[in-house]
Design a protein around this nucleic acid. Structure first.
Lengths: 231, 231
DNA sequence: ACAAAAGTGTTGTTCATACACCCATGG
DNA sequence: CCATGGGTGTATGAACAACACTTTTGT
């Protein structure tokens, strides 16, 4: 494989993905787990992941995992960091690069998820996972909380059309506390990144709440103008 | 090596360290570079780094590199992220975990640095480096800029006793622009993390500037009380 | 008519920015 | 006495937090 390097410094390298979805029907933020297939600790709950192939970029490995387990492509996907303690995996020396992803639950292919025995767990109801995977989820959640106030993550987790109360509920699920609805609405709308629709969602109230959708053009402009988010 | 995993998924794993120091005498932020020893691209400027050993934690590998090249221990050291493009290194498939470090220049062992042919480069004077190392430096600098306003990084880069003008100069080197000295002083002192000494540094003015030192106890208290910085 | 959720404004506080003069001292 | 860098205060606008009532409409 390598013309120059020796074989001495070879390690197992894996990617793990903390995949988050938001269920608008029960207002819960969820994470995708499956029963690990590889020994040791096989059949125990785990983040979805895979070994990285020799000819595969790290990010591509994460994309492959995501596609394998959800049927989705072109998802929001970021690297968090690398976990590399010698004894983190009792089966051998494996370093793992943690990616995190936000997806729209209604776009996943349910049969793909089912075919792997994967399941969505509410984030405050995650069982004990293999290795350091509980730490991983906690760290990603901290990251999400840090950026959610400045990054438009709603567009990754909600359907194309959504209401402000839904968005508020999502943020409350992320921060696991109540937010002031007036201040929230003000702040969100002041970004001018939401386009009000003229139909309403009447499923959760008699008055009905106006739908909005995300203004992708305006967001691109912002990014072009140098607005930067440090994910 | 592994009882359970197959040999198919083995890759080269390295750590690279972006080591920053601040020179109070010329007011420049500097990064430590050396001429890469390993083929290909040997003898070209590079971040300091090494392969990770099989029985070595990632962080320990970074600590080892830092110790090897500077003679220092117990330094400020954080992981940034992992670089893993297939073709990033023409010599073979190598993924690299980037660490960054802030050190006090006057504490390094100069003969250790010299013995590796390592050199300090001003950050706006970095030559073309091997692989993606220029990107790495740029990303670390962005990270430092993001956190410098909320994290007390002066204590990592300056000597035990330092003056406010020195600290200001450091921050100006980091942001590569002028900062308002009155606002800076106000903000820095409002943290109550600096203890004023009653001797002065007269080396750069006739009036002399009071020395301060960092209040480690108060800082620990803050951290205990839940104050959190997302490095 | 009423229950239930959607929607709306004002005020006080805190924080970042902009800006100009006096102070202490060595030469 | 004067040149040099050290040190100080105030005013303004922006962003955030706290807080209560009116609107709509299906039943």
């Amino acid at each position: 494989m390598s013309q120059f390097y020796t074989q001495e410094d070879l390690l197992h390298v894996a990617v793990d993905c903390a995949v988050f979805g938001y269920d608008t029907s029960d207002g819960q933020l969820k994470v995708l787990l499956f029963k690990r297939k590889v020994k040791p600790l096989s059949n125990r709950w785990s983040l979805v992941g895979s070994f990285v192939q020799k000819n595969e970029d790290l990010r591509d490995a994460a994309i492959r995992v995501l596609h394998d387990f959800t049927g989705l492509e072109d998802v929001f996907l970021k690297q968090l960091r690398c976990y590399g303690k010698v004894k983190r995996d009792p089966g051998g020396r494996v370093i793992s690069i943690l990616y995190w992803s936000l997806i729209k639950l209604e776009e996943q292919k349910q049969h793909v998820v089912n075919s792997h025995g994967a399941k969505w767990y509410n984030i405050d109801d995650v069982p004990k996972l293999v290795l350091d995977h509980n730490d991983m989820i906690r760290e990603v959640l901290l990251k999400i909380r840090r950026i959610a106030m400045t990054a438009p993550i709603g567009k990754e987790l909600l359907p194309e059309f959504f209401t402000i109360p839904q968005l508020l509920q999502l943020y409350q699920a992320i921060y696991q506390r109540e937010l002031d609805d007036r201040n929230f609405r003000k702040k969100i709308l002041s970004t001018s990144l939401l386009i009000k629709q003229n139909h309403k969602d009447k499923s959760s109230s008699k008055k009905g709440a106006f739908y909005y959708k995300f203004d992708h053009n305006k967001y691109s402009e912002l990014l072009d103008k140098g607005y930067h988010i440090d994910f």
